[in-house]
Design a protein around this nucleic acid. Sequence first.
DNA 1: TAGAATT
Length: 481
Amino acid sequence: MATVTANGVQQENGFSTTNSAGRMNGLTIGQNTIPMKDHDAIKLFIGQIPRNLEEKDLKPLFEEFGKIYELTVLKDRFTGMHKGCAFLTYCARESALKAQSALHEQKTLPGMNRPIQVKPADSEGRGEDRKLFVGMLGKQQGEDDVRRLFETFGQIEECTVLRGPDGASKGCAFVKFSSHAEAQAAINTLHGGQTMPGASSSLVVKFADTDKERTLRRMHQMAGQLGIFSPMTIQFGAYGAYSHAMMQQQAALMAATQGSYLNPMAAIAAAQMQQMAAFNVNGLVATPMTPSSGTSTPPGISATAVPSIATTIGVNGFSALPPQSNGQPTSEPIYTNGIHPYPAQSPTVADPLQQAYAGVQHYAAAYPAAYAPISQAFPQQPTIIPQQQREGPEGCNLFIYHLPQEFGDAELMQMFLPFGNVISAKVFVDRATNQSKCFGFVSFDNPSSAQAAIQAMNGFQIGMKRLKVQLKRPKDANRPY
DNA sequence: TAGAATT
């Protein structure tokens, strides 16, 4: 990808430079100087940036330490929302080192309650194989105490005690050593050893979660908060990219819907549904999935289509997202990496989206009470009129068993819509009691939709039950003659 | 007992 650099010149990959500290960093062609960076330049991660500061606002702060090669504020790929952090590459390696020592944890930007972070980006160095999670600390133990405990094992690069909003310790910390061996040595000696005053069991010292584990942990947390047992976890666990995006959006959505709900859980739930609904209307989710859909290219979210998330009424009746303050693509070409806030959706992410959508739709449909909108901003879904059961062609008709008791035709229909054109969805009802028999039939207009639905939904857990989704037996299947 | 964020 081309990079828009400090002078706004499109620079294709392939330039080489022999720059070293002390030389002018730039390739001069006529009047233009194309910024060049040292071959050993360091990409810095900048954290704790107020969300109202854009590249142009941050530039002066960092320019003090040298010529900037590239500065990119991180934005949410779906909403364009400022993530509160950035990547910064100086032309000269030396500038990065200077900026790091002058700024890292040294000052706090307006509105933030933690100091700015300036350190090499994850992509620059080794992974997290030298970072420890320390649990079962005493609530009175601060960073200094933790440092003292660990300093004999090596050089500590970072030590942070986790605290709640009130500043009280959460009884755990992260300790980063300069090497994996040092971290391992600390584990060997300290884990399971002493029990800290006030702690319920002995000290826990282990390697911090990997990104994957962290995502999973967050999923579990979120699921717990929503009172969901496993559907979200199962569906989203494998799709970190999407779940991550969704969680990031929660904060914004919560803010956007502030005051509209009697309880925050409903707000989160409805916000998620809105996201899902929005994706649906943009044609992403309704794309028929085939067993090979992982490599197919569904209609992407285009740069122009996605902002309509903010203004489109969901097809399933959920109202539009409130307008977002920074929901528009940046028009600032300088000091960005040229990545549009709404990049075309890649096929690798689109497929998870489809499945994730199914999960949330499904869950929300299964537990309408939990997702019932409270404010007028989120009107009830329109009632789908019960329909006659219709058979699709052979291979297009599914038998679904272990449906939640409260599932009706409409919910069944909604659950399977993401996989294609549902021509019929019927839950069987006991005539005497008018209660669902917890099974039903769904028919698509083509077999690949049916297969996709089986693949995604068979075994899907709701509460204590797992859905059984299989092709409906042909009428004469168990008649030998 | 899992951060505030990592293209």
